[in-house]
């Protein structure tokens, strides 16, 4: 099988999985990066959010072949980025995580927002997280967390 090459969390990576494998499965099962979660498998819930060349995508909808030559960042990479450490502390302080299953996806989407727009308005945060579903928090504490991290 022809391997797929991409940069994963800053490291060159080569994977010889079938090209139509879901990126989500490759990350979780081949690369053991289980911080990216599966909530629906059809691109609705955002639990599997990762960054491909800086854009938030649902990794359950992305075939491996599509990331050839791309830069992929997962929650495991995002939390190592010193720019986003503040997201972690603010999610703790403001109660942004409850059951936690949507939280890595929320962090990834929030990081992408702050990368492009370091001081977003509240409605811009809501808009950026509209593709990430949460069933526990009612969202306000997540938005509070991101808002605090951007100050």
């Amino acid at each position: 099988m022809k391997p797929t090459h991409f940069v994963l969390n800053g490291k060159k990576t080569e994977i010889a999985s079938p090209p139509m494998s879901r990126l989500l499965d490759v990350l979780r099962e081949e690369l053991h990066l289980t911080g990216t979660k599966e909530g629906c498998g059809e691109g609705e819930c955002g639990a599997c959010s990762v960054l491909i060349d800086g854009e938030v995508v649902n990794s359950c909808l992305v075939p491996l072949a599509q990331v050839e030559g791309a830069e992929v960042r997962t929650i495991e990479g995002v939390i190592e980025d010193p720019r986003f450490k503040v997201l972690q502390s603010e999610f703790v302080a403001h109660g942004g995580a409850q059951c936690g299953i949507c939280t890595p996806g929320m962090i990834v989407s929030s990081a992408s927002l702050l990368e492009k727009n370091p001081h977003p308005r509240r409605d811009e945060i809501e808009n950026a997280l509209a593709g990430n579903l949460c069933r526990c928090t009612g969202y306000s504490k997540i938005i509070d967390s991101v808002e605090a991290a951007s100050k």
Binding site: L87, V92, P104
Partner: peptide
């Protein structure tokens, strides 16, 4: 603060 917050936030949980 929630005891297991950080492990959930970082995806380690």
């Amino acid at each position: 603060p929630r005891k297991e917050a950080l492990s959930k936030i970082t995806g380690a949980a």
